[in-house]
Design a binder for these strands. Structure first.
Lengths: 127, 127, 127, 127
DNA sequence: GTGGTCTAGACCACC
DNA sequence: GTGGTCTAGACCACG
């Protein structure tokens, strides 16, 4: 699964687990209906408490990223389940950060350049 | 001072106080060497614990936004003190959010449009 | 038999199997004394554990929907066996949900309209 | 607070706590911005583990019924926060139960009578 | 004092 | 084996 926790990170562990998994799912690294590691197995792999993994899984499910089958395990959902709401959420975060940036005197041209930079490095991979 | 706290906000109160003050300072609403309200006065005005204001001021000082003179009060620093480091910090945040946005399938064109929107509404104020 | 399981459904599989079978029986699709598929056959058809089917059959029997003949198989009961108790059970569920609905501010008129909608769509099929 | 847990109930304790609180909030028994008992206090009152109460509170918050202020406590939200989504959820539950009822041979007239009964007992209280 | 996170370990239901 | 709930008890951040 290749997940690494960062104990210097201030965020709670279960949030880091969530973030890692959502990134893998969003990037398409985990295809639909793929089985995720069991709660216990992932807990062992990350050397954390099963409850912590379970909380991550529970929240991922309530956000539509995965679905749970009693006695079977956790599986990744169809992307249509999360796509739209996550899109809105991220756009709102960016808008808010943009406004803060402007109030600190950052110029439109700098923002545009930043878009170019980031998209440039990713363009080869995805388009 | 016109600071309003939002108790529904998940962030700690001292962070909200910091944010409001940095915004006022960055926007130029508080000129250099202007005296800020005393810890006690601001605490009363906002109906919060003086410790909370204290912490906000302490961190603002360590970030270079204000300077403290023992027995006199707190004053806003020259903008050269914070300008550069805050600029880098925000740009880094935006870059990181951009990368996350791309991994969730958000397109370059959407980002560019967002820049236009935000700058459009702000342009009249600042340029 | 035409039973489809929904693995995204939160309920246990044996409950889904029960629900599907009771619906078939209640709708009259399975006439009295009709033989049901064997535990093993249904387990294979649905690609689930025979224990799961077993449990569904056991509970259907204790609720009066089917009867078991050792060594012969499972057969659907006369409707008089389950009709009355199931009727009471469902009416009680609806009454309880109605009361909850009212406490959340849902109006009588909305409930009446809902009845019309559901009965309207079903009337063509059944009457 | 007058909450009583039912240990014969099959549902998890945290769900019972949630249900009791949502009912109190929906019925208007707890006005907006009213402070709820602290996690620990309610845990003692109900003789359960604080973690269980906390889970109830956390989920109530994510569903918009209450809001949490670090170091202060939990408070009931404006009804606009939950009204709409809860309305849809309940209507969907009722519709689903209606359809099941019809497949078991329950008549439209019985449903209508049930609406009258329930609304009749409540009408005096609320309209 | 408040809520929030995490651990360790137990027990249950389902498959 | 799987996930789900609950307990007991610890530690932290915030006010």
């Amino acid at each position: 699964m290749l997940i690494a926790l960062d104990y210097r990170d201030k965020r709670p562990l279960y949030e880091q687990v969530k973030e890692k998994l959502t990134n893998l799912i969003a990037a398409g690294a985990l295809p639909e209906d793929e089985k995720l590691p069991s709660v216990r197995a992932l807990a062992v792999e990350l050397a954390i408490n099963p409850n912590t993994v379970q909380r991550a899984y529970r929240e991922l499910e309530s956000e539509g990223f995965i679905y749970t089958v009693q006695g079977r395990g956790n599986f990744v959902s169809k992307s249509s389940m999360w796509q739209n709401s996550k899109y809105k959420e991220i756009m709102e975060e960016i808008r808010s950060l943009f406004e803060q940036a402007l109030s600190f005197g950052i110029k439109k041209s700098e923002l545009l350049e930043l878009v170019e930079q980031v998209c440039g490095t990713e363009r080869g991979d995805k388009e």
